[in-house]
Design a protein around this nucleic acid. Sequence first.
DNA 1: TAAGATTGATGTTTCAATCTTT
DNA 2: AAAGATTGAAACATCAATCTTA
Lengths: 156, 156
Amino acid sequence: MTETMAEPSLAAISAWTRLIRAQQQTMNAVEGELKQAGLPPLSWYDALLELSRAEGGRLRPSDLQERLLLAQSNVSRLIDRLETAGFAERCPCPGDARGQLVAITGDGERLRRQMWPVYRAAIQRHVADRLGAEERATALAELLGMLIEAKGGDRP
Amino acid sequence: MTETMAEPSLAAISAWTRLIRAQQQTMNAVEGELKQAGLPPLSWYDALLELSRAEGGRLRPSDLQERLLLAQSNVSRLIDRLETAGFAERCPCPGDARGQLVAITGDGERLRRQMWPVYRAAIQRHVADRLGAEERATALAELLGMLIEAKGGDRP
DNA sequence: TAAGATTGATGTTTCAATCTTT
DNA sequence: AAAGATTGAAACATCAATCTTA
């Protein structure tokens, strides 16, 4: 008995290639606007937001890792950079001496708030405006949701 | 007169975050399957495909750059790697001695053909299967198209 | 001077190995 | 041994400077 494997339709292939390209282009555009405003990259914002939302403004690296979908070593080095820049700091973790706690600093929170308007405007320009009617954004979000392994929320 | 800038709706923000996440997850999954099959990364496939489709199997680096949406230096180094691995080669460009021509080799074409079934199966598994009905793939491709600055086709 | 392309320096990501505590 | 986290080395990306020919 031969195993047969369905082939992706042209529509599926088109969805795939456009997913890659749309992400590439919008990401480049948004990162470009941040840079042009003299602000750090989106990955910093993402990390700062997760810390900011967390209880007490602190998370363990492994929790940050889950939320950001980054490799462990990657998170470790992102924290390094944030810490060097003064936007986060590591503290010992009470109750589990293996672990660390990463806390957002006052400067970190200020930076996050400063980045958001620029980020928001970029989303408006490169996503919302292009899609036009809001129903299309809703439909797109719905379809993209089907590609995602259930995880976390939707806040930018 | 104050300039007002529309804010992105929740739907638009959700579309944005899911675009990033869906790309990240499907890309990781697809790259993972290639690696697991002992094959090189998708960027190699992309370049080999463009060369393969081109007249005479050859393109100038700047044309490759346009099609792949990569930075110039990035393309230059991708060609380096392909050339080192024997899948492409540089030759002088007749008629414009500043330029180069990059040609896919026999091994390069064989590699491309070997990668496609693995790549195709990954698209099926991580995109087509998840979307289910083909109309959804069509709808997704349509919406993503609105985010893309008109460029090139849809072949993977 | 501008176009086509490469290179050096620097920063980031990735992989495997390591270190510490449970 | 396994969990939490970091580190060294190598691959890759990015930015500005460079080189060559048009």
